[in-house]
């Protein structure tokens, strides 16, 4: 009561209060934080920390989002939330989505779930709220990635022959391994400085992840991101 009394002394405050009441009453401006907590928290960890046991790793349904603002590109996120596509061919933890087949293990597509699509206003609001989540800023260095180029053949040689990453990741639809996320969209999805940090030490972000630390040199880290950017340019939007 005393607050409203105070506001009545200041016409500007009163207008702001009325606008806020109106907005929440008619759902005029979507509240990203409220949507995150109501619709996303069942599958995504919004507060951290990352799984510290295999059991927690196996039960993780979607990527951890407590460092979303350090990880994802906002423009990509807003679009993806409106039209989600599968990024990990075998789901979040592949072990929950495989079955034995005639030629070896296969992805059991019946166990995979699709991500719900959000209306444009909600996608924008949720993206805004996600970008505020800056967990693990200690692991990211501004300017860590220095833009540069690499040829397709050198990049592929590094990615496949020298470092063996193709074993678990697809570099184009239908070519590569299935347990890890597709990498031909990685540069569109992820911030470059995050890529440098994650590739340098995946376990620093996610202690139990089944992505191995490949002990990449600083030079190779830069080349990897050049290559991922090149792959991203080749993918049709």
């Amino acid at each position: 009561m005393s607050r409203i009394k105070g506001a009545s002394k200041n016409p500007l405050k009163l207008v702001a209060l009325a606008a806020m009441t109106f907005a929440s009453a008619v759902g005029w401006a979507a509240d990203g934080e409220a949507i995150l907590n109501a619709q996303c928290s069942a599958c995504h960890n919004l507060a951290g920390p990352a799984p510290a046991t295999l059991d927690a790793l196996w039960n993780r349904k979607g990527p951890d989002l407590f460092y979303a603002g350090n990880k994802y590109q906002a423009a990509w996120m807003e679009k993806w939330l409106q039209k989600p596509t599968r990024i990990r061919p075998a789901g979040m933890f592949y072990g929950n989505h495989i079955k034995p087949g005639a030629k070896g293990d296969e992805v059991d597509a019946t166990t995979l779930v699709t991500h719900p699509a959000l209306p444009a206003t909600d996608a924008k609001a949720v993206t805004g709220a996600l970008m505020q989540r800056k967990g693990r800023s200690d692991l990211v260095t501004a300017g860590a990635y220095v833009p540069g180029t690499i040829s397709r053949s050198s990049g592929e040689m590094l990615f496949d022959k020298f470092k063996g990453c193709l074993a678990c990741h697809e570099i184009e639809p239908g070519y590569g391994g299935l347990s890890g996320p597709e990498v031909y969209t990685a540069a569109k999805r992820l911030q470059e400085n995050y890529l440098i940090s994650y590739l340098r030490n995946p376990q620093a972000w996610d202690p139990k992840t089944f992505m191995p630390n490949k002990r990449l040199s600083d030079t190779d880290l830069q080349k990897f991101v050049h290559y991922l950017r090149l792959l991203g340019e080749e993918v049709k939007p």
Binding site: L57, D105, A167, S179
Partner: peptide, 10 residues
């Protein structure tokens, strides 16, 4: 199950 099965199989 976590680290080996992705390549060595179930």
């Amino acid at each position: 199950r976590t680290y080996c099965v992705q390549c060595h199989g179930m």
